[in-house]
């Protein structure tokens, strides 16, 4: 009986399910993927129980299939995210995200004296350390770490 009372985020016919997002990163993921600006049907759940983190979030986007480069952008805030590609209610493919070598236009340079924080410039970083996350600014050459990570 208890099973039936549990609220399920409804299934989608075609589209992408992004699972295992740390709950705290949900809105960053939404913003990085621009989901707040598209008209597709989107459902999300957050603060769900998870084996991997304290609380996880999940996003289901109907009729949307992400390019690999596009989805890899979320790896900075959701490194363990799993993608399920859904076609006709069936999972046809599962995918992990990987941290890219270059990060363009998503992350803010932590250095307040960096030119990118003072003029309208697209930020660019080289990922120097994918495990501990160290992003080297193409402009000021300073390192932004995970603790200092802030999305644009």
């Amino acid at each position: 009986m208890s099973k039936q009372k549990q609220l399920q985020v409804s299934a989608i016919e075609n589209g992408t399910v992004i699972d295992h997002i740390p709950a705290a990163s949900l809105f960053d993921v939404i913003s990085i993927l621009g989901l707040d600006h598209i008209s597709n049907l989107i459902t999300f759940g957050t603060n769900l129980d998870s084996h991997k983190f304290d609380k996880k979030a999940i996003i289901k986007v109907a009729d949307k299939f992400f390019e690999r480069d596009e989805i890899n952008k979320i790896s900075l805030v959701a490194p363990h995210a799993k993608l399920n590609i859904i076609r006709d209610y069936e999972v046809v493919e599962k995918r992990d995200v990987t941290i890219p070598d270059d990060v363009v236009g998503i992350v803010k340079c932590f250095n307040p004296k960096c030119v990118t924080n003072n003029e309208a410039i697209t930020t660019r970083f080289r990922v120097e350390d994918k495990v501990d996350l160290a992003l080297k600014c193409h402009y000021c050459e300073k390192i932004t770490t995970r603790d200092e990570l802030q999305m644009m």
Partner: peptide
């Protein structure tokens, strides 16, 4: 010469 870091690259 410019006070902002990265200004020369830009």
């Amino acid at each position: 010469r410019h006070p902002l870091e990265g200004s020369a690259r830009y």
